[in-house]
């Protein structure tokens, strides 16, 4: 798919606030996927750190064995995520200039999204759920 070759930096100029206009959604799949992949990568990284920290605090052999297995699985998963992100052009660990450019553009896009009225009106949908105690 061609969008994979055009990640966030494919966005041309400032984002338009009219997010319902189909023309303004160009480059959105790459934007969404690269953002979620980055979130996923950071989660995996935190998981590895948490497992390692827990290992330094736990003495019990059985618990240590289990957490050791967990840590190894997490490290493998982290490697796979970063490899996928490199293949898709969302992550450039060997090309710092490119990574900086990408991060600045995506930060800008995120700031613009944060200024949008994405969920206007009252978002309490309690009436549509079974909530007898509310």
């Amino acid at each position: 798919m061609s969008y994979e070759k055009k990640p966030i930096n494919a966005l041309k100029g400032p984002m338009n606030n009219d997010y319902l206009e189909i023309q303004n959604s160009e480059g959105m799949p790459g934007l969404v996927d690269s953002t979620i992949a980055l979130n996923f990568l950071l989660n995996a990284k935190s998981g590895i750190k948490n497992c390692a920290t827990a290992l330094t605090e736990i003495a019990d052999p059985e618990a240590r064995k289990e957490i050791h297995n967990m840590l190894n699985a997490q490290i493998d998963l982290h490697a796979q995520i970063s490899e996928l992100m490199m293949n898709k052009g969302w992550f450039h660990p060997y090309h710092v200039a490119e990574q900086f450019k990408l991060d600045l553009v995506s930060a800008q896009a995120a700031v613009q999204i944060s200024n949008m009225q994405l969920f206007p009106g009252n978002t309490s949908r309690l009436g549509t759920f079974a909530t007898p105690n509310y």
């Binding site: 992949a37 996923f40 898709k88």
Partner: peptide, 25 residues
């Protein structure tokens, strides 16, 4: 929970497969 939720949002099927792997793990 996050990985399960993100599966409904992503476009890329390879990324979705990795998210599912994380859910299983």
């Amino acid at each position: 929970t996050t990985s399960k939720m993100a599966q409904g949002v992503v476009f890329d099927q390879d990324l979705k497969a990795l998210l599912e792997k994380d859910v299983q793990q």
